[in-house]
Write a protein that binds this DNA or RNA. Structure first.
Lengths: 189, 189
DNA sequence: TACATTATTGACCGATGGTTAATTAATAAG
DNA sequence: CTTATTAATTAACCATCGGTCAATAATGTA
């Protein structure tokens, strides 16, 4: 019975960080508000002071993370390097993002759950369009729209599989390189 | 109060069929024994007479489905045709199987649940090993182990995506051809 | 110090779900 | 017909979960 630890106040950021870690590790459905609270060493009721409900907490995290995907893509595009290497970086970056935000990725591209889905609008489409037009530009007409789609599906397969097996990007870094090289080769040569 | 409907006895097969459909539609965690029972128009307790628990029911389904995938692969391998075409057939066959047996495929490769996956350690690996060694043999040393894995993941991405959007194999036959050709080309040329 | 505001607690609710145990009906065997 | 076995029903148990809320402690402020 010692409410309010002054030196250790609860913030939205703290909640999001703890929640993100749990969501990534266990998936949306397997994380309860009580678990998050336990991680933060606060009561689960406290979280509801900062977020309306579980879905809103999750959606806030997803939005933040997808902003970082946009930044990542832009960062790579702004670099000075050969286009072929840029493609490699984009593909690897996409895989890395997918694996480091597994729960989010799942929501965007895999999950059927209507309750959660209703929170998103066209984010997946927008995300793909950004990706596709970047790749298209870097191929200088060598690749068709259909081929870029094929490329996306191949990356998607990689991410999907390792999302399911729950491994980290570092665990599969080498395999990701092989995968990306295979795709770049098929695209440009 | 009318236990035991004689003319409509409950069998393991009936339970598995109903459960498979629900598992695929909603995912392991989102399907309750009560839902399955409702679908079968029996009591949920009845299922426990035929299966020890939910996980065992699920595991039994998965095992059965893996067997049918293995059979498909063997059928193709037994055919008489050039190796390049055989590769195409395997890839297209894999996609076709995935899309025409979406239920099985999703159970086998898409479900993430830890509790469940602890039940099936070998099945997916064994199934993949069959696929990989078949492809390896057909490439005559041109492909590395890593590349074959890459190929598998690319196919996986295709199937996964179109499983989600619920299209039939016929709907995406042409795209599947593009995809498979892309892969074969990267593998052999 | 007294007061108002803010943050946190912990009990509680209704729902759901896995699982088990007691019980009852249908069927087969003798 | 009687009895044993099998297969199913029903209800109850227990845990968990999302979410709410009144009570209350910590803090800033006047």
């Amino acid at each position: 019975m010692s409410p309010r630890k002054a030196e250790n106040e609860l913030t939205r950021g703290m909640i999001m960080d703890a929640a993100r870690e749990l969501f990534v590790k266990n998936g949306y459905q397997h994380v309860s508000m009580r678990q998050i609270a336990k991680e933060l060493q606060c009561s689960h009721g406290a979280i509801y002071y900062h977020f309306k409900n579980k879905a809103e907490l999750f959606y806030t995290i997803v939005e933040e993370d997808f902003r970082s995907l946009d930044e990542l893509l832009q960062t790579i595009l702004d670099k000075e390097m050969p286009k072929r290497e840029k493609l490699m970086e984009i593909f690897l970056g996409y895989i890395e993002f997918g694996l480091q935000h597994q729960s989010q990725y799942e929501i965007m591209f895999l999950i059927k759950d209507e309750e959660v889905r209703s929170y998103l609008h066209q984010s997946p489409n927008v995300s793909y369009e950004r990706f596709a037009s970047a790749v298209y530009g870097l191929c200088e007409g060598k690749a068709s729209i259909g081929q870029i789609w094929t490329v996306f599906l191949s990356l998607h397969g990689f991410v999907t599989h390792y999302c399911r097996s729950g491994q980290t990007y570092d665990d599969v870094k080498d395999l990701a390189m092989v995968h990306a090289r295979f795709i770049v080769k098929g695209l440009l040569d």
